[in-house]
Structures are given as C-alpha cells and as structure tokens.
C-alpha cells in the first residue's frame, strides 16, 4: 500500500498515546479491532477505532451518514486498505480466517444487469470449497438451493438477477453468505430499501444464525428497530462513541454524541433507550 505523507502523519497520530500492545484476543471473539484508521484523502473516514465484538451476539453498527460505518466493515475485511490498525477474527489475522467470515456487501454496490442467474450468485458462496477449478456437483447445487430456501427464494433459482426486486436481490445476497457456512456474518446495510416481507425474512434468518451460535455484525441505519433486532450496538462517528449490550450502550447520551445532538427529542423518546 502506498501512503501519502498525509496518510503517514495520520497513522502516526493514530498510534500516538498507545504505549502497550493490547491483551491477547481470545479465540472465541468473532472480531477484535485495534487502532483502525482509514482515509480516502487527508481527512480520516475512520480514526483510531478499537472494537471488540461479543461472541454469539447480533451487533448493530450505527452512526450518522458518513460516520464510517461501512468503511469500518470493509477495512476490517481488507476490502479497502487501512492506514493503520490490526484486526483479529477469532483470534487470527483476518487473512487466515477467511473461511469463517461471510460478507454481504451493500446491494447497490454491484451491477444487477450482470448476466447471471440467482443460482450462479449463490454458488459463488461455495468458492472456498470448490476453488478455481474443481467441478460443481449436484451436492453443491443442492446446498445452494437449501440456502435459497432459507431466505424464501428457492423458486427463483433460474431467474436472471436483474429481474428481481430490491428485496429479493438482498435475500439472494444473504443466501450466498449462508452458503459460506461461516461463523461470523458481516452485513452492510441489509435492510436498506427492502420491502417489509424481506426485512422480516432477513431478521428471521439472522436470529436463527444466532441460535446456531454464530455472530452477526450489521451496519444499520434505522434506529427505531435497533432494540427489536439487535442485542449489541457499536456507535461510531469517525471515532468510536460507545459499544456494548443494547441495555447499556444504546443511551441518549451516546446517540447525542454520535449524531452531534441532531436527533429530535420526540424521536429519541420512541427508541426505548437504555439508562
């Protein structure tokens, strides 16, 4: 990675004040982040963020637009380069834990006119199993179909992906992640622009994942559903604002700090805030 002088300065600033290495990350911690800084230019999008996500939890990453929610997720995965910082997934560097991570990018990040069927997309989730050259067998197709069934899309397997509604496309992306049989699911705005039926289908799948002992981390923008859908929150506005169980960390003070006091009081009162 080539760093501009501005980015190097940023990395130094992010490191300032850190004198000792953190405690070793236990192997059951799905994701631990230390000193993560990401920058698209001179100004950091994510600055010196530490995070330790709880195992078997459903965590919502929340914060205002441009707060670096998606950037945090992508940089932790290595999808975009980080200026500085360390990421451990189940105690290992993220590169060595790829088999245990499933990632659902934002639906709008791909071109849905791509000549592929729903089945083609879900089969991509099996890449870690089949690699570059191994043949896809009937068993692989059956596994992919089972994942489509879990999101209620089995009837659409042969459909071209561009012919689906936004909600159906989102469910296909989730099915592809299920096909990975991972232990940690990272979802980037899974509920953005989807219909009510899809929202329910997705949350049902996520809750089942938690019952199976998997960890789920989702970038989320709808504060009104935080308490119903998630048990942990991570508040960010370039820097970390708060993290922890919803009952402890989802407070008015934390929201005001993250959103700069821009949330109206009547709105806040609907959120069943903690503390």
């Amino acid at each position: 990675m080539r760093k501009s002088t501005g980015q190097a300065t940023l990395a130094l600033a992010a490191e300032a004040g850190r004198t000792k290495l953190p405690d070793p990350v236990p192997g059951d911690c799905p994701m631990a982040i230390r000193g993560l800084t990401v920058s698209y230019g001179e100004k950091p999008a994510v600055f010196s963020v530490d995070a330790r996500f709880a195992p078997g939890a459903m965590t919502a990453i929340i914060g205002p637009n441009g707060a670096g929610k998606s950037t945090l997720l992508k940089a932790a995965l290595g999808v975009i380069p980080r200026v500085s910082g360390e990421v451990r997934v189940f105690g290992q560097p993220v590169e060595q834990a790829r088999d245990r991570i499933a990632y659902v990018p934002q639906r709008a990040s791909v071109d849905w006119d791509f000549p592929a069927t729903v089945m083609d997309v879900v089969l991509m989730g099996l890449y870690r199993q089949v690699g570059l050259l191994r043949r896809l067998t009937g068993a692989h197709r059956a596994a992919a179909r089972a994942c489509l069934d879990r999101v209620g899309m089995a009837d659409f397997a042969a459909r071209q992906i561009g012919q689906l509604s936004g909600g159906q496309q989102q469910r296909v992306f989730l099915a592809r992640a299920l096909a990975q049989e991972a232990d940690l699911y990272l979802l980037d705005e899974p509920f953005a622009g989807v219909d009510a039926a899809t929202e329910r289908a997705i949350i049902d799948v996520i809750k089942t994942l938690r019952e199976e002992g998997k960890s789920v981390i989702a970038v989320h923008h709808d504060l009104t559903t935080v308490r119903r859908y998630f048990d942990h929150v991570f508040l960010i506005n370039v820097r970390k604002v708060a993290e922890g169980p919803v009952d402890e960390a989802f407070t008015e003070a934390a929201l005001n700090a993250a959103y700069g006091g821009s949330l109206a009081a009547p709105y806040l009162s609907q959120l069943e805030l903690a503390g």
């Binding site: 995965l77 999808v79 990018p105 990040s109 991509m124 990272l186």
Partner: peptide, 10 residues
C-alpha cells in the same frame, strides 16, 4: 460481478 465480495473471499 462483485469485487468487494471477491476480495473478502481472498
């Protein structure tokens, strides 16, 4: 099709 996903897959 999906560069971010491909990168996350390694």
């Amino acid at each position: 099709f999906d560069e971010g996903f491909a990168q996350a897959m390694g």
